[in-house]
Simulated scan of single mutants.
Amino acid sequence: MKGAKLKLDHIDRKIIAALQLDGRMTTQQLGDRIGLSASPCARRIRLLEQAGVIKGYAAIIDEALFGLPVSAFASIKLSRQHEDDLDRFAKAVSRWPEVVDCYLMTGQRDYLLRIVVSDLAEYERFLKEKLTRLDGVASIETSFALTQVKRTTFLPET
């Protein structure tokens, strides 16, 4: 069922909204919140998980308190955009724990990365030891976040 287009009804959307606010609640608590008994609620959650709508559950960590207060946004241009070059870059980036977000982009740049590190020296190390050593990287432009204005895991309603 994974990858199949799932038609979400209003109950599914209520489940998703509630779990986005508190992914630790029990099935009983969730059912009480949305007006459904625990058994059908658990069945719907299982279907949402099997369909890939719910990909997993995670704690949201304060990056600064965890010791990673610096967010760097690196715009990457590759020397070529052939499929094997894109795949090689994506594989390398997926192994680097400092990269917490990576997007293949349209426009002037090929990739946008968000990298979290403890300080500027750590970013310089990442840049010199990993990013610049990757074959096919033509240019890198980095911007540093001063303040995080908004970050959410809560999706807007569709």
Rank of each mutant, 00 (worst) to 15 (best):
K55P: 03
L68I: 09
K128M: 07
E157N: 06
S75G: 10
I11Y: 00
K5Y: 09
L78R: 04
F66N: 11
E122S: 15
A51K: 00
L48K: 00
R13H: 04
I11A: 00
K128Y: 02
R88I: 01
V100M: 07
S79N: 14
A38P: 02
T26P: 13
Q148I: 11
T27E: 02
K7Q: 15
R46F: 10
E157Q: 04
T142A: 12
V149T: 07
E141F: 06
L146C: 05
R88N: 02
V149S: 04
G31Q: 01
M105Q: 13
Q29T: 11
L21S: 11
A42Q: 15
L112S: 12
W96S: 08
D135F: 13
F154H: 02
F66R: 14
C102T: 13
T26R: 15
A121K: 15
R151F: 02
T158P: 15
R95H: 09
M25L: 13
G107M: 05
S118D: 08
L78H: 01
L30A: 04
V117F: 00
V100R: 14
I16L: 03
P156Y: 00
S39Q: 11
S94P: 05
K77H: 04
L112F: 05
L47S: 05
L127T: 10
L120Q: 11
A38V: 08
C102F: 09
A74F: 01
D22A: 06
K55D: 09
S39V: 11
E122L: 06
D110N: 06
E129V: 04
L134Q: 15
E49C: 00
E124M: 07
R13Q: 07
A4V: 11
K5C: 06
Y57D: 07
P69S: 06
R109V: 13
G67R: 07
I34N: 02
S79Y: 09
A90D: 01
V99T: 12
A18L: 03
L30F: 03
Q50E: 12
V149H: 11
T26M: 12
P156N: 03
F126G: 10
I16G: 01
A38K: 13
L127N: 15
K130S: 12
A72I: 14
K5N: 11
H10S: 15
P40F: 00
Q20L: 10
L6V: 10
L127D: 15
L6N: 04
G67Y: 07
G52Q: 09
V53W: 09
V116P: 03
L155C: 05
G107P: 08
K7Y: 14
S37Y: 05
I15L: 02
L19R: 07
Q28F: 03
G31I: 00
E157G: 05
M1Y: 01
L36R: 13
A74K: 03
F154V: 12
E63W: 01
Q108E: 13
Q28P: 01
G56P: 10
L127I: 08
A74L: 01
L65M: 09
V70H: 10
A38R: 14
V99K: 14
H10R: 15
Q148A: 08
R114S: 12
R43M: 06
L104M: 01
K150G: 00
T147Y: 08
I11G: 00
A138R: 15
V116D: 10
D119M: 10
T152L: 04
R80H: 08
I115L: 02
R151N: 04
R80K: 10
C41T: 15
D22P: 01
E124C: 05
G67Q: 05
Y103P: 05
A4P: 04
A18Y: 03
C102V: 14
